[in-house]
Design a protein around this nucleic acid. Structure first.
Length: 585
RNA sequence: GGAGCCGUAGUUCAACUUGGUUAGAGCGCCGGCCUGUCACGCCGGAGGCUGCGGGUUCGAGCCCCGUCGGCUCCGCCA
């Protein structure tokens, strides 16, 4: 018996049709006489009915059907009378009265209930992922992911891009994340690396003249995991020749518009707002601000330094900053809440959190005994603090101020549901520093990557003031999350060599590790630039999920294990021998 | 590498304040009843190395130490 329809398909107009359905038993309601079963496949649920007056043997089999048994049934579509219509089901206007039933495969009692909302623990879900993936919400997520990928491919195809596959076995390169290594059998003692991104390949494709490349591609980074980070993840990788920042940004904005329209029917307005890195940091405390709400940070160092409050004075003397933000119109906070927020700020290195509550009975603050009324008014002025507002101040180094207040800003927004009204707030962050100093390695490292071009007007600073050279880099930020990042690349070998020198990579090492790229730049490499888009994060947001595990079919746990297949695992001695490897310790 | 939360029946949870009878409940599973349910309902039953290992105690699911695993965060992630 082959199916004639799927379980989400039948409607009132199909009444009286003879149909054959296949699927999983999702619920059984045995009334002694009649038996109702919800038959489920990935297209939906159809109620099938077993009537003892139609067939004794069929109903005997139906009685014994357990959850998740796979069956095929033949029967007649019947329109349900008004009272019996189920408005929660797309197929709720009909049911199928079964005349024939075959069990295709039974199921043991399942270790996790196949139903939404999910009740199972993550551990159980991951161990029995194939059952977890039967849940309609997971199927919807993966279908949404598929549709998004199709949308991306169609968009780039129409825009004249071609998808080129690049190797998964490549050369390990220094800089950046830790590589996943693959030992070579033929060349014992040598290793391939899995790509952290196809960065060098796509630049080489530009040298080859494959202007307008894209690829939906797996990337691998051997770093610790997070809710939005897996060791293998998917990137929409893009590169274009003869372009500047605005060209890349324009292509990506139109892609975003297309995705949000096609997938969520949401109209995004372009161009997206742009912020430069320094502004983002000063105003929002980080380089990926959530603009679904405002609540900006203000610097009141000069005002605070002249008050009688010792902590402020000391901060100013030690070149620190006093910064704060104002929570509007939320009324008074309890001591407990204030303590909680203070602890939160402290977890980012702040020594304390000055809380000033403006109430209809006046200013309430533990520091009001150190600060005169007049000084207090001056401090509050930049925040335009009114009754029922609360000002939070941090006095510390600039980076701690940013870190603590940036996170506090997001924390307060979550606490008061300030993100609920605006679903999506995209923006570009531009003018990143080219380099940042790594105190551990005692050298400059590339903030984006070593192939990022400096801004032409800053090139002269590269030698005397590397820390202040800005990069031709851009990040796309959505709701406080970086979802894409890219740059205009260096396309001349002299500049690339200069960059490696700045990074403290000597000529020999550069030649050994990146020689092919530097050499390629000497053979007519066009100016080029591109971007890499975090596909999992994007789909996660489209799906309204808070972990990328929810949009990845078979994800790893936070310790990079796969609970289902038990990888990573030990290998046979013979496999190691073939590879010329020996385990130590 | 560090911090926090968590781990009890197939599964999801409970067992509190303060360590003290036989470790309970929903779902699932097994048996019975029920002809319009859609989380069907009703009656009965089986099912437990309380993650693992130590310790404290007359006595540990509960307290302590270690360990394994899950989640969140910091470091890390060009």
């Amino acid at each position: 018996m082959k199916r004639s329809h799927v379980c989400g398909e039948l409607r009132r107009s199909d009444a009286d049709r003879e149909v054959t359905l296949t699927g999983w038993v999702s619920s059984q309601r045995d009334h002694g006489g009649l038996i109702f079963i919800d038959l489920r496949d990935r297209w939906g649920i159809t109620q099938i009915v077993f009537d003892p007056e139609i067939s004794k043997s069929v109903i005997e089999t139906a009685k014994r059907l357990r959850m998740e048994t796979v069956i095929v049934v033949r029967g007649k579509v019947v329109a349900r009378p008004g009272k019996m219509v189920n408005k929660d089901l797309a197929t709720g206007e009909i049911e199928v009265v079964v005349t024939e039933l075959n069990v295709l495969n039974e199921s043991k009692p399942v270790p996790l209930a196949v139903k939404d909302p999910c009740e199972a623990m993550d551990e159980t879900r991951l161990k029995y992922r194939y059952l977890d993936l039967r849940r309609p919400s997971m199927q919807n997520n993966l279908i949404l992911r598929h549709r998004t990928a199709q949308c991306v491919r169609s968009y780039f195809d129409n825009a004249g891009f071609i998808e080129v596959e690049t190797p998964f076995l490549m050369k390990s390169t220094p800089e950046g994340a830790r590589d996943y290594l693959v030992p070579s059998r033929i060349h014992k003692g040598k290793f391939y690396a899995l790509p952290q991104s196809p960065q060098q390949y796509k630049q080489l494709l530009m040298v080859s003249g494959y202007d307008r490349y894209f690829q939906i591609v797996k990337c691998f980074r051997d770093e610790d995991l997070r809710a939005d980070r897996q060791p293998e993840f998917t990137q929409i990788d893009v590169e274009m020749s003869f372009v500047d920042e605005d060209d890349v940004i324009g292509v990506m904005e139109k892609l975003m518009v297309r995705i949000f329209k096609d997938i969520l029917n949401i109209e995004l307005k372009i161009p997206f707002p742009r912020l430069n890195y320094a502004e983002a940091l000063a105003r929002y405390g980080n380089d990926r601000p959530d603009l679904r709400f405002d609540m900006p940070i203000s610097d009141i160092t000069e005002l605070a330094g002249t008050t009688g409050f010792r902590v402020f004075q000391d901060t100013v003397l030690s070149q620190g900053r006093v910064r704060g933000l104002c929570l509007k119109k939320r009324g008074r906070m309890s001591r407990k809440q204030v303590d909680e927020l203070t602890d939160y700020a402290k977890s980012f290195g702040a020594k304390g959190l000055v809380v000033i509550q403006v109430t209809d009975e006046g200013i309430q603050s533990p520091v009001s005994k150190f600060i005169s009324d007049e000084e207090m008014q001056r401090i509050l002025k930049p925040f335009d603090a009114q009754v029922n507002d609360i000002v939070f101040l941090v006095a510390d180094s600039e980076s701690v101020c940013c870190e603590a207040l940036g996170n506090l800003r997001n924390y307060l927004a979550r606490m008061f549901g300030m993100t609920d009204n605006v679903p999506f707030a995209p923006l570009w962050v531009l003018d990143f520093p080219l380099l940042e100093f790594d105190p551990e390695e005692k050298r400059f490292v590339a903030m984006h990557h070593p192939f990022t071009s400096p801004k032409p007007e800053d090139v002269s600073l590269m030698d005397q003031d590397p820390a202040n050279v800005r990069a031709r880099a851009y990040d796309l930020v959505l709701n406080g999350s970086e979802i894409a990042g890219g740059s205009i690349r260096i396309h001349r070998s002299d500049m690339q060599s200069k960059m490696f020198r700045l990074l403290g990579i000597d000529e020999e090492t550069a030649a050994r590790k990146f020689g092919f790229l530097i050499e390629a730049l000497d053979y007519g490499a066009p100016p080029h630039g591109g971007i890499a888009f975090g596909f999992d994060r994007l789909v996660m947001m489209l799906a309204g999920e808070s972990s990328i595990r929810e949009v990845i079919a078979f994800p790893k746990t936070t310790s990079a294990l796969s609970l289902m297949d038990g990888c990573p695992s030990e290998v046979d001695a013979g496999q190691l021998r073939d590879l010329g490897l020996k385990l130590i310790g």
